[in-house]
């Protein structure tokens, strides 16, 4: 487990409608895959929908991406004011 800055929360914990900046992705393969998607470290997105026990749907520009629970735990974000 890599260390995480204190102002960061996992994507799992982001509330519906909140905007955030992706700061850290813990898995190397995932990091490269998300770089291609456009959800790299440093990119801004919004929590479009979240299921009670399940994926988080992130909206990034016009693109919606569903991210499974396991994965959301590895993505650390900084919530920003709307």
């Amino acid at each position: 487990m890599q260390s995480v800055q204190s102002n960061l929360i996992s994507l799992r914990a982001v509330k519906k409608g909140e905007r955030f900046i992706v700061r850290q992705i813990d898995d190397k393969d995932m990091r490269t895959q998300l770089l291609r998607f456009g959800l790299a470290e440093g990119s801004e997105a919004m929590c479009f929908e979240r299921l009670p026990f399940g994926p988080v749907v992130v909206k990034h520009r016009r693109q919606e991406v569903a991210i499974g629970e396991e994965l959301t735990k590895k993505i650390w974000v900084e919530v920003i004011a709307n």
Partner: peptide, 19 residues
């Protein structure tokens, strides 16, 4: 279909799959 995949994802993880 991809949205259905998202909705049922949690159930599918129970049988070793994802949505």
């Amino acid at each position: 279909l991809p949205r259905l995949a998202t909705m049922v994802d949690r159930l599918f993880t129970g049988i070793g799959l994802n949505g």
